[in-house]
Simulated scan of single mutants.
Amino acid sequence: MSLLRKEETGALYGYARVSTGDQDLALQLDALKNEGCNNKNIFTDKISGATSQRVGLDACLFQLKKGDTLLVWRLDRLGRSMPHLVSLVEELRQRGIGFRSICDGAIDTTTASGELVFNIFSSLAQFERRLIQERTRAGLEAARARGRTGGRKPLDPNNPRVKMAKTLHEDKGLDVKEICKQMQISRSTFYIYRLVHVKDAAKIIVDPSVKTIMHRV
């Protein structure tokens, strides 16, 4: 049974993406053209979906206007994740732009039933976010009940790297810059290593502009 589609008053735009330059866009491009997309209205990216900056997608979203419809081959070609996908489609809806997925036929916000299906997807994404938040909160509460708090474990004074930083600084009299270069660490890491051996850490002044660690009087 065919779905009753709202009248499309604008243009049809397509977006295609593959993860690497070695993959071919041909399959997606052919599918978009078969659905009525013109070459000039198809935007592409050859980049991982996890990457936030996608030049082709940004250009496509900029070009779209009220009454247009965005078409993709499959849902995962558009969004980095379900929450990101829901956010993008909601943005399109607010701008009066339709959205369709070729392989996911039920996802078509230009039809009443397709819009309903996507609203269900949106609710599931929100439910997933709440579950993650609740699990994180429960994990932190359980850790606190066992006497632990979030964050990294404190460094062991017997850690070889920590001991090396102490030896180089105290025994050989090297300045911070030379030690960092020799150990291939940053100044901040060096200061963290040194604080492990300081009994009264509150009296330490960490100043990256100086060559030594100073103590408050």
Rank of each mutant, 00 (worst) to 15 (best):
K172T: 07
Q23I: 01
R129Y: 00
Q94S: 08
P208K: 00
I205C: 08
G49D: 01
H215P: 04
N34W: 05
R161D: 13
D108Q: 06
G147L: 03
G21M: 10
V210T: 13
L116Y: 15
G10M: 06
I132D: 06
T189I: 03
D24F: 03
G98T: 06
R130K: 13
A138V: 05
I47M: 12
R74E: 14
A138W: 06
R5G: 09
V86W: 04
D24L: 07
L27V: 13
T111I: 02
P154E: 05
M82K: 09
A59G: 07
D207E: 08
I47A: 11
A201H: 11
V198Y: 09
P157K: 00
R194C: 00
G151V: 01
I205E: 12
G14Q: 03
T110N: 13
M82Q: 11
R146S: 10
C60A: 15
N38G: 12
R135C: 02
G139M: 09
G114P: 02
R137A: 14
T69Q: 08
T149M: 11
E91L: 10
R187K: 14
E7A: 12
V206H: 05
F118S: 06
E170N: 12
S186T: 13
G173L: 09
R216C: 05
K199Q: 12
K6G: 13
I192E: 13
T69N: 08
D30T: 12
A143T: 03
P160I: 09
Q126L: 02
T189C: 04
E35Y: 15
L25S: 01
A11H: 10
A50I: 03
Y193C: 02
E8S: 12
I213V: 15
L61N: 00
E128N: 04
G79D: 02
